[in-house]
Simulated assay, not measured.
Amino acid sequence: MNKQNSPENRAAQTSGPDLARRDLLKLTGAGVAALGVGSLSNIPSPKAQGMSAGWDKVFPRSESVDHQKVTLKNRYGITLSADLYQPKNRAGRRLAALAISGPFGAVKEQSSGLYAQTMAERGFITLAFDPSFTGESGGEPRNVASPDINTEDFSAAVDFLGLHPSVDRERIGVIGICGWGGMALNAVAVDKRVKAVAASTMYDMTRVMSRGYNDSVTLEQRTQTLEQLSRQRWQDAEKGTPAHGPVSLELKGGEPQFVVEYADYYKKPRGFHPRAINSNASWTLTTSLSFMNMPLLTYIAEIAPRPVLLIHGEQAHSRYFSETAYAAAAEPKELLIIPGANHTDLYDRVDMIPFDKLQSFFNQHLSA
């Protein structure tokens, strides 16, 4: 990535006590990629949505998989909405299962659902879920993320799968995509029920929000960001509701290439979904607060002796997240770099997503 065009360098040109919300978003490190870019507007507070009926995914339905909408509760009492996929030829057998979520700002009708359905075609029972506070899942306020609660969401999915009569609870794995790749690794480090984990095109959201892309945010910039976020809390408290940022990925021209690639997925028919934050909404302005001093991957080495598979695109701006996570993880571990792929190619490009590798990895490590 050209650091000259990075969100942090552009944000560094802005200073003073009267930063606009848009500048604040840039300073949080994930401002462009995770929270979107666009003109500031008065955005009504989003509401939780009930579960939709029928097939509402951005990918075609498989005829070899049974699909069912389900709900489950996490340890904090938040109801999560999920899609359960099961191979039709399961013939009463207890199968290995996978809990899947991501990317950051997406919904289960997008990338995680595609991964889930494809892995169900390959013999696994899979659960793609909306994280707390997003999509069809519960939790108030809407469109906020938490490194703790969203890590717990993965363990809640494991709870659900382990109680399902068609699942062998000793053969459960996890797949996290993009920002939920970091959450997946964090969950598996603490949840010893999970036997193997894969993270695809992984983002460490605590790292990027606290230190910026390529760790380029200075202490002065970080302090300035925390000053602004802290003062935003007064405004939210006075209004009784959190303020939201600009609608995600409304491009104005001149954005870095990776932001254009995000928009090509979330804002085009390829991946647009009305419930996705990155397609049609925005995060709360203070979402990054809980990420600023809570590193997700502190205990990644404690996943061992269970295996870790990290998958990333050769051309992805985010590749360094997987490379440094791989260095910190303990054996057994594997880093698979996909030639020519950018970050979002691994959201939905089935010719680039290494499903054969994912199948062999989980077959090996979730064997009976």
Rank of each mutant, 00 (worst) to 15 (best):
H244E: 08
T79S: 12
F124K: 01
G271Q: 15
P60C: 11
S112C: 07
S248V: 05
L336T: 08
T28R: 10
S367P: 04
A120K: 04
D83A: 13
N280A: 15
D130A: 14
P87C: 02
P141T: 03
K195L: 11
G254S: 09
T286Q: 14
E314N: 09
Q117H: 02
H244V: 08
P246V: 10
V217D: 15
I300Y: 10
A301T: 06
L80T: 09
T28Y: 00
V247K: 15
P246I: 04
T134Q: 14
V190C: 09
N342G: 04
N143S: 11
I353C: 06
I311L: 14
A304V: 03
P87K: 03
A368T: 00
K26N: 02
L161T: 00
P60W: 05
S216T: 10
A34V: 02
S288I: 00
V194S: 05
L27V: 01
V208L: 14
G212K: 12
V208H: 02
T126G: 13
A243Q: 12
F133A: 10
V217E: 15
D66E: 13
Y347F: 15
I338G: 14
N293C: 04
D236V: 01
P44Y: 02
V197K: 02
D191H: 14
P44V: 05
E109C: 14
Q359Y: 10
S248Q: 12
Y85Q: 09
A329E: 04
P46W: 05
K333Q: 09
I78N: 03
E334N: 14
A327M: 11
G179Y: 07
G176T: 02
I337C: 11
V308T: 02
V350H: 15
G179C: 04
A116L: 03
L249C: 14
T201W: 12
I277G: 09
A196R: 02
K3C: 03
L35N: 05
D159P: 00
M209H: 05
A196C: 02
K192V: 05
S137W: 00
E261A: 08
E121N: 14
R222S: 15
N74L: 06
Q224H: 13
R10C: 06
K333V: 07
E121Q: 10
T134S: 04
S216C: 09
S111W: 13
L358N: 05
W180C: 03
T298R: 13
L310G: 02
G113C: 07
V350E: 15
R193T: 06
K47I: 12
M294Q: 06
T71G: 09
L335W: 12
H164Y: 11
P295Q: 10
N5F: 01
T14V: 09
Q221R: 04
S15Y: 12
L84H: 03
N280S: 14
L297D: 02
K268I: 07
Y326D: 05
A304W: 09
Q68V: 12
A97M: 01
Q364E: 15
V194P: 04
L336Y: 14
N5D: 04
F321M: 00
S318V: 00
S64A: 15
Q68N: 13
L72M: 06
Q221T: 08
M205V: 12
P354H: 04
N74Q: 11
Q117G: 01
E314K: 01
E250T: 00
S279H: 14
D18S: 10
D264T: 08
K252L: 07
D66A: 11
N363Y: 06
G135M: 05
F59P: 06
G105V: 08
